[in-house]
Amino acid sequence: MSATPSKYMNRRKLMIRIRQHALYYVLIGFALVWTLVFQFLPMAGIVMAFQDFDIIKGFRGSPWVGFKHFIEMFRIDPLRRAIVNTIYYSVLKLFFAFPLTIIFALLLNELTNMTFKRIVQTVSYLPYFLSWIAVVSLFYSFFELYGPLNDLRLRLFGPDTPRVNILMEPRYFTGIMFWSHVYKEIGWGTIIYLAAISGIDGQLYEAAVVDGCGRFRLVLHITLPGIMPTIVILFIMQAGGLLNANFEQIIGLQNLYTRESSEVINTIVYRYGLQQGKFSLATAFGLTQGVVSFIIMFVVNRISKSLSGVGVW
């Protein structure tokens, strides 16, 4: 019976509270307007994947074509190759670069001299603070025909050794991609693991030592299980990026000789969309990539939750 007046009172109270907070709404308004314009409007722009989008006619004037571009895209050979490349590169990073970071963190943790440890850490952060194009530039100079690597090869194998232009050879691209990724990210990537390790209860180690565990078994039985939740979460987050190659890295490393064999989905979207003006087709690629990525992330998270109880959400 008294529901109506109290509801009315509540609403009045709410209005008063909102009025009291008016200035806060102005403050958050900047971020909200920004999100609407720069994030949600492009999402609406996805409709162009279902149109024959023409930049002069705009969204209203361009004809609707349904799933034409989604059917067409699977007939394009370079795209098929790009999908294979993208997955290949991601799998390499996930199953080889990812464990390397953990191993590096564990080895750092075994250093007993704190000053030395800090120096190693600081040095290993260096590439992280360089832009991708700077790292690419370093790699180009290092692997050049007359760069340090070829100099070293000549010194090791004698002056008759032919100089190789590693960066112009398609077959070396994957290796360069992988190691430049490791070079740039491995040092910085250890921070989160080292933090997780320092969060492990010291009594566990003491108890294990009493039970006769040596140093290696401590790592195996205490440290690794202790950081397992961190490992799982980072793994899920990376697995979600299975279809997402690093655009900056690939576009930077590619050159005329290696481009064709090293295209990934992101770079194909760039070439078809921005360089050739096939906006709708490229949007269809991008949309498919986004949807599939989301599903992968969701599935991996589910699997992890049911197996280990750890999930990102």
Partner: peptide, 15 residues
């Protein structure tokens, strides 16, 4: 929400 979904390169470019 934008942390999980985005419009992608081309719609952003057109915008």
């Amino acid at each position: 929400i934008p942390m999980f979904v985005s419009g992608g390169m081309i719609p952003t470019f057109i915008l």
